[in-house]
Design a protein around this nucleic acid. Structure first.
Lengths: 156, 156
DNA sequence: TCCCTCGTTGCAAACTGTTCTCATTACGCT
DNA sequence: AGCGTAATGAGAACAGTTTGCAACGAGGGA
């Protein structure tokens, strides 16, 4: 099985922070990893994809990456803080590009139909900071999940 | 297989809110349901158990309740708002007794060792309320999960 | 540039947490 | 007490995720 290779030069000329972080850890840059990260970069932050969705999006655009590799890569990207992992209860975990300069955003989830809205609120972030400080924890990220019924579903 | 029965009188004399809610919905009070709820009541609020933990705790104290029933009962108790369901990512969901007179409480979770601390903060609750109102959602409950490193784990 | 090493991949099998199926039991109304 | 039907137990089924292993290939050294 032949992989469509990304020419090494194309990423060697622009060594992304991801690539340098990888290298400094004895890890390697591979076409698969590149593809997964690119997908998230194209899609932008604030959109959440499940492992399965990442897999099918890549497959649709003609890129063959095995599901197991997707999982391994997502885990890696989360550990390296390039992606953010959300736990939205039902329907498996989702991942999104982590933008270090933006405040965490939070989710309003309809427990019946799954409709999800995002919002931001500094009070929430500060509450997380305060709590972390209080217990001596080092804060990584906070996520507020508000479980609710959307207008459509609450009329039933 | 014979079930160790709880005498009907013992709970008929003190019809718990759980029992009346059940009845009014055409559902039945069973020894199994009683046991699961009792376990949470003994343990108190603020402690989170997974389905598996509920199962083994009951088994250890000599109560035989099948795992499938545990799951069914937990789901039921959550739907009836006697228990609160937490989504703490890794290791499956956890449940805790819901105290209706307390504000939602939030969780500070060490992503490395799993240590979990609780805190309360009205700003968070208000943020959830505001967001729900803003999108026309009917709020059920909000939970803030702060992912962090505890003092022990951040020193590695 | 070619080689070699060892990190990475693909595949399939294994796991894990949860739900479902269905025969059997038993709650609770009368 | 009798009956209709909700609830249970046991195990199979399931979805999402992980792991084991043989084959591959990234990238540093000669």
């Amino acid at each position: 099985m032949k992989l469509k290779l990304i020419s090494p030069a194309s990423y060697r000329t622009h060594p992304s922070p991801f690539e340098s972080d990888l290298r400094s850890d004895g890890k390697r840059m591979t076409p698969q990893r590149k593809k997964v990260l690119s997908l998230f970069e194209e899609i932008g932050s604030g959109i959440h994809l499940s492992a399965e969705e990442v897999h099918s999006k890549l497959t649709i655009s003609g890129e063959k990456v095995s599901l197991a590799t997707i999982y391994r890569t997502l885990r890696l990207l989360v550990k390296m803080t390039f992606l953010n992992e959300l736990d939205l209860s039902e329907g498996g975990n989702r991942f999104e590009l982590l933008s270090h300069d933006h405040p965490d955003h939070h989710h309003l989830i309809c427990i019946r139909c799954g409709r999800t809205e995002e919002f931001e609120n500094n009070n929430v972030i500060n509450a997380g900071k305060a709590a972390a400080k209080n217990f001596g924890f080092k804060l990584l990220e906070s996520s507020l999940n508000v479980r609710a019924l959307c207008p459509k579903c609450s009329n039933k």
